[in-house]
Simulated scan of single mutants.
Amino acid sequence: MTFTKTSQKFGQWADSRANTVFGLGFSSEQQLTKFAEKFQEVKEAARLARDRSQEKTETSSNHSQESGRETPCSTRASSVNGTDDEKASHGGPSDAQLKTENDKLKLALAQSSSNVKKWETELHSLRESNARLTSALQESAASIEHWKKQFSICKDENDQLRSKIDELEEQCNEIDKERERNAQLSRRLQELEAELQDKELEIEDLRKQGEIIPELMTECETVSEKLQAAEKRNKDLEEKVRALRTEVEESKHRQNNLKTELQTFLDVLDGKIDELHDFRQGLSKLGVDN
């Protein structure tokens, strides 16, 4: 099997004989590197154990062949030159060596079997961990998508609130302009009242002059006409004053309505800002958990 790093925190290995690919995720790159090194170490140890077992098998087979070839010679030698005790002395060491080699092979096979079982257990635990990590990653991705949608909705609402604030600021500017116009109208009203008083004084003076100087009757008629015109103008001015006062009252009423609407909007805006703050804290917490 060959282990390959596919990213900084994920690796996979393929078993060509089983036609299977395994993957495993890690919380840090250091753990991935440590696992890759341990994987390579175990792989090298398994290879060495396999090579040793093959060497031992070949050695045992060579010994058996050599003993098979040497047995007739020793038999002939014993039959010619020696006794049965000498033949036993020639065959004993090779059998003991073969038995020792067989014991070593059995021990290596037992160790290999225990290692295989251990690696299968570790592989099973790694598969379970990988499945849990995969499910957690999927849940995290779904949660991130949900929060992204919520963030987009809140962003749209925030844009709408900002446009509403701009509109209210424009309305406030219009209110300030109306206040300035009202102040101008008030000053104009005071000027008209002062002018009216002056005209009344002038009319009074003209009446006195008409009573005192009979010779000025013709002029008095002219003054009377002026007086009528002034009275008419006075009425017009009074109507204008009433209209201006009505307009001032309406302006004050609209100003109070705009203030109430602005206060309501500011309360709603504070609520939305608190929701955005909570949402940002949720996103930060989610990032830390991931």
Rank of each mutant, 00 (worst) to 15 (best):
I165A: 12
S129F: 09
S140R: 15
K177E: 15
E204Y: 02
R181W: 04
E167D: 03
E180S: 07
L126F: 05
K177F: 01
S135A: 14
K177Y: 04
N130A: 14
C172N: 15
E193R: 13
H124S: 14
C172T: 13
E202R: 09
S113F: 02
A183F: 02
L133V: 03
R162M: 10
N115W: 03
E191C: 03
S152K: 00
L137G: 15
I213M: 00
Q209W: 06
S114V: 02
D198I: 06
N115C: 12
L137N: 15
E139R: 14
H146W: 06
E169S: 09
E139T: 09
M217Y: 06
Q197H: 08
S224E: 06
T222Y: 13
R181D: 05
I213R: 12
E139D: 15
Q150L: 01
S140C: 09
C172K: 15
I144Y: 09
S135W: 01
L196A: 14
I153H: 01
I165R: 14
L201P: 00
F151E: 02
S140P: 01
Q197S: 13
S112R: 06
S224F: 02
L133H: 09
V223S: 11
R187K: 03
C220D: 08
Q209A: 11
Q190V: 06
S129A: 15
I153R: 01
E195D: 02
S152M: 01
D198Y: 03
R162Y: 04
L168P: 01
L137P: 03
E193Q: 15
S125M: 13
P214K: 12
Q184P: 00
L133A: 10
E221R: 10
T134S: 05
S152N: 02
A194V: 13
L201C: 04
S114M: 07
I144L: 12
E178V: 14
S186T: 15
E215Y: 08
R187G: 04
L168I: 03
T121R: 08
I213H: 07
S135Q: 11
G210T: 05
